[in-house]
Design a protein around this nucleic acid. Structure first.
Length: 168
DNA sequence: CGTAAGATGAAG
DNA sequence: TTCATCTTACGG
């Protein structure tokens, strides 16, 4: 049996996101600032982590200007580093089931909910980076998942043919 | 106060 | 398809 370290670097490439603006009735920011959603109105590059369905946490990256109420929900990653650690966190050995959902990737990366509202750009334990040698890829725009309002906006974006996204 | 819906996931 | 599970938001 392999010994797997309990700590280490975990890295993944974002392959699926959804966009939410304040004018969008499906957005948590639609009705203005509340205790729950206040991080959305903070600085771009901050985390907005929300709790839902009584048991799940999901991660957004705030963007736009302060007070604008705009964020991007991170829905799926392609696991790159720390895969064994992610398997431990998720209690599964299936690589394609590690980070193919917004609450799953929170679990896999072990992201603490108290990062809510903090910056992901400067020295945080959780960091958002732009790859130095980005490879070309094709982006598909489609309907967002799990919303009841504003379904006409095709604001879910994912990398075409990525196997790290939940299949329909 | 009471209550219902919710940017989900896992199991059957 | 159903259910687990609980906070927030909104109506009375």
């Amino acid at each position: 049996m392999n010994i797997v370290p309990r700590e280490g670097v975990i890295c993944g490439r974002i392959v699926e996101v959804e966009a939410y603006t304040q004018g969008d009735s499906a957005s948590h920011s639609f009705k203005g600032k509340t205790l729950r959603n206040s991080p959305i109105f903070g600085d771009a590059g901050n985390a907005y982590i929300y709790f839902t369905y009584g048991m799940h946490y999901c991660l957004n990256i705030v963007n736009g200007k302060v007070g604008q109420g705009e964020a991007v929900l991170i829905r799926a990653l392609e696991p790159l580093l720390g895969i064994e650690l992610m398997k431990l966190n998720r209690k599964t050995n299936e690589v394609y089931n590690l980070t193919n959902g917004p609450a799953k990737l929170m679990q896999a990366l072990g992201i603490p909910k108290d990062l809510n509202g903090s910056s992901l750009l400067n020295g945080s334990n959780l960091q958002l980076k732009i790859p130095r040698d980005g490879q070309a890829f094709e982006i598909i725009a489609d309907k967002r998942i799990g919303i009841t309002r504003s379904k006409e906006n095709l604001w879910r974006f994912y990398i075409k043919d990525s196997p790290y996204i939940r299949k329909k």
